[in-house]
Design a protein around this nucleic acid. Structure first.
Length: 244
DNA sequence: GGTTATGTTATTTC
DNA sequence: AGAAATAACATAAC
């Protein structure tokens, strides 16, 4: 379920619990001192990329929904509870997720300039990080959370389509203005994605999980590319391949 | 029953 | 030692 925009959407759903005390913390997450969490007041909720951060005085609970994560707001699902937080105003339950307790201040752990959903996102820094890895295929580089935190496989495919860049293009062979446009497109698409979530418009994928190019009306290519072999959906006619 | 999938991390191997 | 490949994890849908 993740990708940055959905995590931000979830933060907004959970925002009413801020300033409320945890009446009960439970679950089977390893290494979480549930007893210590109980009674603490939730001081804020942040996101970083695909991570959801519940802030308490002195510590933070970090939840990552990974590939199969599920959550229930004011309800429970019939599966093993990993983390459940009950507040006076309701409850929030997480399943099949990664969960960790952080004791360091968030500022020491996260640089929000690389989070595509954050107001302080720094496109120049992202382009510089891309340029530092000239031999990497762009489809792999865009998914790197150290470059563009929050970008997942959907946003990657859509941004490459909108930017008219072939996923196997090598970063170093792609003109700098094209890289800059790609980074801006990642941010813009992520922001649109959040809006669709809020408006309940449903998914608005151009190529991701689609069969046909909306520009050329020819079948899309669907291949697992890059070292991580993630699915790429692209049009070989309108997406330019840049190689050395 | 096999494959796939919006993802990351731990372990093993070279 | 350190990079790179592999396994692990968790779940539903086709």
């Amino acid at each position: 379920m993740p990708e940055g925009p959905q995590v931000v959407f979830l933060r907004e759903l959970a925002a009413p619990f801020v300033n409320q005390p945890v009446l009960k913390a439970e679950g089977n997450a390893a290494g979480i001192p549930f007893h210590e969490v109980t009674g603490q007041v939730l001081t804020g909720i942040e996101t970083f990329g695909k991570e959801l951060l519940f802030c308490f005085p002195g510590f933070t609970l970090r939840v990552h929904l990974m590939l199969f994560g599920k959550y229930a707001l004011n309800g429970r699902l019939d599966r093993e509870l990993v983390l459940g937080l009950t507040f006076p105003g309701g409850n929030l339950n997480f399943y099949a997720c990664g969960c960790r307790l952080l004791r360091q201040p968030l500022a020491a752990l996260y640089d929000w300039r690389r989070d595509v959903m954050h107001p302080s996102f720094d496109p120049g820094a992202a382009v510089a990080k891309l340029l530092a890895r000239p031999n990497q295929p762009i489809c792999e580089a865009l998914l790197d959370q150290a470059v563009l935190a929050g970008v997942g496989n959907g946003i990657k495919n859509e941004s490459l389509f909108l930017g008219r860049v072939h996923p196997q293009s090598l970063v170093g062979a792609t003109p700098r203005p094209v890289l800059e446009r790609l980074v801006r497109t990642c941010v813009q698409f992520s922001s649109d994605y959040l809006r669709w979530k809020k408006e309940g418009t449903g998914d608005q994928w151009h190529v991701y999980r689609q069969r046909q190019c909306p520009r050329d009306h020819i079948p899309l290519r669907i291949e697992k590319l890059g070292k991580s072999r993630r699915s790429c959906y692209y049009c070989e006619k309108c997406q330019q391949l840049y190689l050395h």
